[in-house]
Each structure stands twice: as C-alpha cells, then as structure tokens.
C-alpha cells in the first residue's frame, strides 16, 4: 500500500525540473509549494524524513548549477567558428582540411557539419567548435539564424575564381551577415578567406577587398531603398559603415575584419594551403 503512494508522487518530479530552467525565482516559489506537497504525501505514505532531505539537497545542487550557468555561461560557451559563404565556395573542403588534414570529395551540403577543433598550444578547455554551414540560397538563412549565437569567429569564404561573376551575390550575403543585429551584438571576429588561390584565374585578396568595398557601397544603397516586408515590422538591421561616406572596410568598427588567402583542395597534385586560416583561428582563443 505505501508503495503505491510513492509511485503516485513520483510523476511531478520531471516537470518540476522543467520549470527550473525558466527562472530561478520561479523555481524558488515552486519549491516551497512542492516541499509542502511532498511533506504531505510523505506523511501519508509513512516515508521517513531521510529521503526527503536528500531530495532537498539535490534540488539545491541543481539550483546552484543553473545559477552558475547563468552567471558564467554567456561568453565561454560561445566557442563556435562558423564557415559561411555561397554554395561551392569550398566550405566543406576547408572544414575537412581543418579537422582531419585530408581532402574529401564533396557534394552540395544539406546540413551543417560540426566538429571540435583543438587549437595547437592552447588549453583543452579552450577547444573550439567548427561549424560548416550550407551555402545554398534556399537554406543558408535558416542555418545562420540557428547558429549565429554561437559565433566566436566567422570565416566568410569566397571563391576567388568565380568572384567576378558572383560578386553581387557574394556582397549581398556578406552584407546580411555584417548588418545582422544579433551578430553585431556579439561582434565576433570576421575573416574573409579568398579560397581557390591555386586556380589560374583566381583574384588576389587585394582585388577582392577593393571590389567588395565598391559593391557593398551599392548594396547598402539598394537595400535601404528596398520595400518593407509584409510582417509590418521595419527592418532592424544595423547600418553598415559610416552614414554619408563611401563604404570602406575600415569603417566597420564592430568586427575585426581581415582578408586572407587559402586553397582548401588537395588532390591532383595541388597541395592545400590553409596556414593563414589556421593561424587566424588560433588568434580566437
């Protein structure tokens, strides 16, 4: 008979834990009421106070853990390095090179790739998480939304060979990232990696920087004239650069922007060269 009673009172527990994550005040309120509840039931069931004390102890430990996370968690759990860029820029190749040091053939990504990345010479606790996000137009926005809060650093990868042809797309996506409100709030370091430098027609990072600057200037104009959207809310994006001046990357104060060159593919005799990316990532810890 007593056993049955105990069973009855078990179910509320998981739900109590659920609430705790919401806020600490709420937890306290609910705890006091649940203490009474338990007390009552314990008496009914004839269970002695020992078990009950242990339960309270557990609650307190849990509370502290939650609080601790609230206080310290905010910056240290942001250890993601996002690889972002248009489709076919070479993100997955770069990811594979960084993680395993080998090349793999790839297909258009449908999902993110995630792996932890140990920076040479850094403490284990400082390990970073590499996130390779898909670049196809139909899904990239959803994935940036999902992972942007984890960004300690963003590697924006550009295909230097097709850059001239795709410049409008490259600039538009970069513009979206640099003006995103919550990315601005956490202001991660950003580097623009000009990939596929092994190719003959690849543009150098100098050229890419200059042309991107010009194109971003135009995009800034057209985007500010764009129609507002159906939801009625005005766009809450951050203004890029300085109002009333031609855009320059040096005007972006929120991010430490850097340009670098790499090539991520290493077959058919070509050797990959991702040293600059590696050392940039090391600078994050």
């Amino acid at each position: 008979m007593p056993n049955m009673r105990v069973k009855q009172l078990l179910p509320p527990k998981p739900f109590e834990i659920f609430h705790m994550e919401r806020s600490c005040c709420e937890v306290r309120l609910e705890m006091s009421s649940s203490i009474e509840y338990y007390n009552q039931l314990m008496k009914d069931a004839g269970v002695d106070g020992g078990v009950f004390a242990v339960l309270i102890g557990l609650f307190i430990v849990f509370c502290t853990a939650v609080l601790w996370r609230f206080i310290t968690g905010s910056s240290s759990n942001r250890n993601g390095v996002l690889l972002i860029g248009l489709s076919d820029a070479g993100k997955t190749n770069l990811f594979s090179q960084l993680v395993s040091g080998t090349g793999r053939s790839t297909q258009t990504s449908l999902k993110e790739n995630e792996a932890s990345y140990a920076v040479e010479g850094a403490k284990r606790s400082e390990s970073l998480t590499l996130l390779d996000l898909p670049g196809h137009e139909a899904i990239r926005q959803q994935f940036v939304e999902k992972f942007k809060d984890k960004a300690r650093g963003i590697v924006y990868i550009v295909d230097s060979e097709t850059f001239q042809k795709n410049i409008k797309d490259v600039a538009e996506f970069l513009f979206q990232i640099l003006t995103d409100k919550s990315i601005n709030k956490i202001s991660p370091k950003v580097c623009i990696a000009c990939n596929k430098q092994d190719k003959l027609m690849a543009k150098s990072k100098k050229v890419i920087q200059l042309q991107l600057e010009k194109e971003l200037n135009t995009v800034r104009k057209t985007q500010s004239a764009a129609l507002s959207s159906t939801s009625g809310s005005g766009d809450d994006n951050v203004y890029l650069g300085i109002k009333g001046e031609e855009f320059q990357f040096s005007h972006v104060k929120k991010f430490k922007l850097e340009f670098l060159e790499c090539n991520a593919k290493s077959d058919d005799g070509a050797k990959s060269n991702i040293d600059e990316v590696k050392s940039w990532i090391s600078s994050l810890v």
Binding site: H136, E137, A138, I139, Q141, Q142, K168, D169, E172, T218, V219, K221, T222, Q223, A225, A226
Partner: peptide, 20 residues
Amino acid sequence: ESLVQILTPKRRVDILRDVL
C-alpha cells in the same frame, strides 16, 4: 522549415541593383 525553404528565393532578388 520546409515551408520557409520553399518561400525563400533561390536566387538573389534585388531589382534596384539590377536596374542600376
């Protein structure tokens, strides 16, 4: 997710940019 994916343009839509 699928519906958002359907409604998201598969190419750049910036008519002002193209007019320029």
